[in-house]
Design a binder for these strands. Structure first.
Lengths: 208, 208, 208, 208
DNA sequence: TATGAATGAGCATTCATTCAT
DNA sequence: TATGAATGAATGCTCATTCAT
C-alpha cells in the first residue's frame, strides 16, 4: 500500500462529545475539514475522515454542507482582511510587510499553519477551487493593490508583488526551502521592502 | 519553442506500430503519463487512461514502473538544465532572463505547455511529489544560484528570486491572473531584471 | 444524474396554516403521500419529500404511521366503491362501463390522475403492496363481479374482464400505447361492451 | 427492519467457480441479474447481490456492463419471437393462442417464471425501463398485430387484445388472482379465442 | 407532543493493483 | 512476456429511522 503516507493522526481537538448541538457540530466539522484539507488537499481527504475527527457521522457533512465540495469551499473561506488600501493610511511597504507576515510567516493555526491561499493552491487542479482562488487573489488582494500603485503597468507590477509573496509562501510551506524556512520575518522584510520599492518608485531610466 | 532547446524530441503520437519492443512501450507510457499528469495532476489521472493513450494494457504500468507513484516520479523527472552558472559566462540578469522565459513564458510541449516545476507543484500535496520538487528546486536551481550571488544572505536572496519566478509561474498557469497572463515576455523581463538587480547590487543604504 | 426526471415540484397546497392539530397533520401527510407515491412509486419517494410537502417534520411520519410502508398502505387505501352489484339494478355492460371509466379513463385527482389500482401496480414488486393489491382486486371487485355472472367458470370469466380493464389501464398509463391513449371513452366502451357480452351471454357453440 | 421481505436465497445455479473466463462470467452475471431483477425489481436489487450470486466481485458488473441500468437493459432483453404475422400462415386465434401461452402460462425459467414484459412492468417507473417496455410492446408485438387486423380502429382493437393478455399476465403473476392462477391453459384459451374473434369478425350491428 | 440532530447501513461506482494464463 | 480478468477497499452520497430535548 503506497498510500500510507496519508497522515492518520486523530483530531487534535474534538473537545467534548457535544451532542444535538447544530452550531457546535457544524463548527466541529468545519474545523476538522479545515485541518484535513490543509494537510492533505481535497482529493486526499475523505468525508469519513473529517466526520471521525469531528466525532460525528459522515452523513452530517451532507446534511450541513450539501457536498464535500461545498464543505471545502466554506472551510477555506476566510473574510478577506480589508487592510490593504483601507484602514489608516500607511506607506505601501507597511502594507506589504503585513501581507508578508500573513502569507509567508503567519501561523494560521486553523489551517495547519499555512495561509488559506497556499492551502487552496494545493487543490487548485479542481476548477471550483481554482475559481475560488482566483477570486480571492485577483479580485481581492491584487485589485486593491494595483489601484494603489500608479502608472500604466500597475496591474502587472501588482501581480509581480503578489507573485513574490505567493512564491515565498510556496517556498516556505510547500517546498520547504531552507533559507526562507529558517529566515526570520525581520531579515526578510527588509529585502522584500527593497523589492517593493523597486516596483513602486518611478525610475527615470527605464532600463531593464 | 523554449528559450534553450534542451528538451530532446520524441514521437508526439506513436499511433500505429503495433508490435513494440520494451523500450518503446516504456517510452510511450512515460510520454502519455507526462501529458496526463501535467494536464490533470496526479489524483486526476488514472493509470488506465495513461495506458490507453499509450495503446497498451494498464498492467504494464506496474510491470515497468512498479506503481503509479513511481511512474509519476519518472515522468516528471527532467535533467536539470545546466544553464545557470555553467556554460559561457554571462551576466546574472541574463541568467534570470533565461529562467523567466523557461519557467513562466516557455512552452514545454512535453508537459502540456508548462514548466515541470509548476506541474509538480500542482500535485505537491503528495509527500513524494513534494520531496521530488524540493530536490529539484533547492538542490538544483537554487543552490547554484546562491553560489553565484555573494554576501551573507546569498541563499535567502537566491530563494527570493526563485520565489518570484515560481510565483509568477503560479500566477500565470495556476491562478490565471490577468495582467501576467496577457503580458509579453519583453514587458516582463525589464521589471524582473530590475528586481534581480535590486537583490544583486550591494546597496550602501541597508534600509529596508 | 439520470434520475432527474423525478418530479421535484413543491406541493401545490398546504401552504400557510402553521399550527395544526393532530388530525389535520395526519391528513396532510396522507394527501402528500398519495400524490408522491402515485407519481413516483414507493421506491422513488422519500419520507422527507412527503413531510416537506405537508409542511411538517419527517419524524412525524413514524410517529403517526410507524413506517414508510404503513404510510403507503394507508395512503393508497380507498373504500371500495359499492357500484358493482350494489346500487340500483342495471345491466352488466352498464357496470363494466362504469368500471372502464373509473379504471381506465377516470381522472383520480387525489392519485395524480390514475386509478389507485394502477398506482399500486406500479409498486407491486413490494410484497406488502402486492398483498394489498390482491385484497382490493380479488376480494373486492372480482368477487362481487363473479357472483353477478353465472355459470361454472364465472370466476375465471370475471377475472378475464378484470384483466382486460386492468390491462387497458396499464396500456394507457404505464406503457403509454398510442391508440388507447388517444382513444375516447365512447370509442372504447363499444368494443369493451362487445367483449363483455361475449363472456356473458351463454353461447350454444362451446367452440373456442 | 421492515425490509426483510427482500428474498435472500442464494443463487440456484452458480455452478462452477469458473475463473478468468470472460464469457462465462458475463453470462453468470446476466443470469443472476435476470433472476434478481425478475424477483425484486430494479430498485430492490443491488449489484453486490447480483455479483454474489454469480460468485464474482461487484466491480465486474461495471467492467462488463457499464452500469446497473445497462445491465438491466441487457438482462431483460430477449429476441422478440417473430411468430406473429411471420412464419407459416395460420389463423389469428392460433397466434393469440401462442401469445397467451407465452405471456400468461409460459414458465420463463430464466426470468423466475414470468414473461419478461411482466418483469419489466415491475420496474416501469424508471423511464429507461418504460421506454424499453413500450418499444418491445408497441413497436414489436402490437404493430404487427394491428396490421393483421383490418378496419379503421385496427390499432385500438390490437391494443385491446394486448391489454387482455398483458392484464391476464398481471393477474396471474403479479396479483395472483385465484381463478386465473388455477386455470389450465386449455380452459382459458377457449375464452380468449372467443374474445379475439369478437374483435376480429366484422359485426353488422355496431352496437356496443 | 413535536422537532430536528444524529445515526448507520446501504447505495452505485471507481481505482490501483494482483494474478492466472 | 504481456494480456486482461479479477479483486477489494475506498469513494461520495442517500435513506429510513431513532433519540434526545
Amino acid at each position: 500500500m503506497t498510500y500510507a503516507d496519508r497522515m492518520t493522526e486523530a483530531a487534535p481537538s474534538a473537545p467534548s462529545p457535544r451532542r444535538r448541538d447544530r452550531a457546535a457540530t457544524r463548527a466541529a466539522l468545519l474545523e476538522a475539514a479545515r485541518l484535513r484539507f490543509s494537510r492533505q488537499g481535497f482529493d486526499g481527504t475523505g468525508v469519513r475522515e473529517i466526520a471521525a475527527d469531528a466525532g460525528v457521522d459522515a452523513a452530517l457533512v451532507f446534511r450541513y454542507f450539501g457536498s464535500k465540495e461545498k464543505l471545502y469551499a466554506e472551510a477555506v473561506h476566510v473574510e478577506i482582511p480589508q487592510g490593504l488600501t483601507d484602514g489608516p493610511p500607511r506607506p505601501l511597504t507597511r502594507v506589504t510587510d503585513e501581507l508578508l507576515y500573513d502569507v509567508v510567516f503567519g501561523d494560521w493555526e486553523k489551517f495547519d499553519g499555512e495561509h488559506p491561499l497556499l492551502v487552496m493552491l494545493r487543490s487548485a487542479h479542481r476548477p471550483a477551487v481554482r475559481d475560488q482562488l482566483r477570486d480571492r487573489l485577483c479580485d481581492g488582494y491584487l485589485r486593491d493593490f494595483a489601484e494603489r500603485l500608479g502608472g500604466g503597468d500597475a496591474a502587472l507590477r501588482a501581480e509581480l508583488i503578489g507573485a513574490l509573496l505567493l512564491g515565498m509562501g510556496v517556498m516556505r510551506s510547500v517546498v520547504g526551502s531552507p533559507a526562507l524556512t529558517e529566515a526570520t520575518f525581520d531579515e526578510t522584510r527588509l529585502l522584500v521592502a527593497r523589492l517593493v520599492r523597486t516596483l513602486t518608485e518611478p525610475r527615470a531610466d527605464g532600463v531593464g
